[in-house]
Simulated assay, not measured.
Amino acid sequence: MGARIDATEFEGKRIVVTGGSKGAGRAVMARLAAGGGRMLTAARGAPDDLDADSFVQADLSTVEGVGHLAEAALARLGGVDILVHVVGGSSSPGGGFAALDDAAWAAELGINLMTAVRLDRLLVPGMIARGKGAVVHTSSIQRRLPLYDSTIAYAAAKAALSTYSKALSKELGPKGVRVNAVAPGWIYTDASARLVERIADSSGITEAAARQSILDALGGIPIGRPAEPDEVAELIAFLASDRAAAIHGAEYTIDGGTVPTV
């Protein structure tokens, strides 16, 4: 992960991470655990690299699944000090706005917005009662640079998440709970690597050329590469830590310079 990690920074902190079984969420789990945090996450399937004590089997796209995770957090951890929302994504078909029916919109809004709204509603009151806590929402640069062909609903949901995050910060700041957001661009997760492989195979090109085709579709990334999951995790760890005690109601972009405007 690069910089030396303080193994006691999150000692005694009770931490829930959504989407913590893979990708950037898994990197967040590892980073905060390395800092001494007591971790809990959820996914629909049990991952091989997480012990049972830090995992709950639940579908966070549903009201019931979110409730199950919240109940487990209270039962196992006794409350939550840090809540990090990473779960999200898009499963909509290509074809622009006309290709998306109500079910597609509901699915995108559900996983990218309502999971955070529902879990905050269940776990943040405990932070308010203690007068301290930190919440980090994961938005996306697509809230500013939407790709209309296949992720228009995802982009709209992330825009809503950013607005919700800012509104929540105004309510919770005076009560001792910090709320911030991060907005990643392309993150080179295992899923991204598989996407590159699929493009290379289907187009008969090298993986390097396939990666470049994605960079071109994004309008280029000035640093020449996507972010690594560990880099996103490091930013989230900072915002969740006491090092960021005066940072509140902010959104930090981590996209290698993809967004071309101020």
Score class of each variant (00 low, 15 high):
115 T>D: 07
190 D>G: 09
228 E>D: 08
128 I>K: 12
257 G>E: 01
63 V>I: 15
154 Y>I: 08
149 D>P: 03
233 A>C: 05
216 D>M: 01
36 G>I: 11
197 E>D: 13
116 A>Y: 08
99 A>Y: 03
22 K>E: 13
77 L>K: 07
83 L>H: 06
139 S>N: 08
201 D>T: 14
58 A>N: 09
169 S>M: 12
132 K>V: 13
196 V>I: 11
129 A>D: 13
52 A>H: 14
21 S>N: 12
113 L>G: 04
111 I>P: 11
98 A>E: 11
49 D>V: 02
226 P>W: 00
148 Y>N: 14
194 R>T: 11
186 W>Q: 07
122 L>K: 15
99 A>E: 00
82 I>E: 08
170 K>I: 12
76 R>D: 04
62 T>G: 06
182 V>W: 04
45 G>I: 15
242 D>Q: 08
239 L>T: 02
112 N>P: 07
179 V>C: 10
174 P>H: 04
84 V>I: 15
146 P>L: 04
72 A>L: 01
180 N>Q: 06
41 T>E: 01
90 S>Q: 05
204 G>S: 07
206 T>N: 02
151 T>D: 00
209 A>I: 06
64 E>M: 09
181 A>D: 09
226 P>E: 00
197 E>K: 14
213 S>P: 05
51 D>C: 09
240 A>H: 00
133 G>F: 05
44 R>C: 02
72 A>G: 01
21 S>G: 06
113 L>F: 14
46 A>S: 10
26 R>W: 15
81 D>C: 05
11 E>R: 12
149 D>T: 04
125 P>E: 09
122 L>S: 08
25 G>S: 06
3 A>D: 13
207 E>N: 11
118 R>W: 10
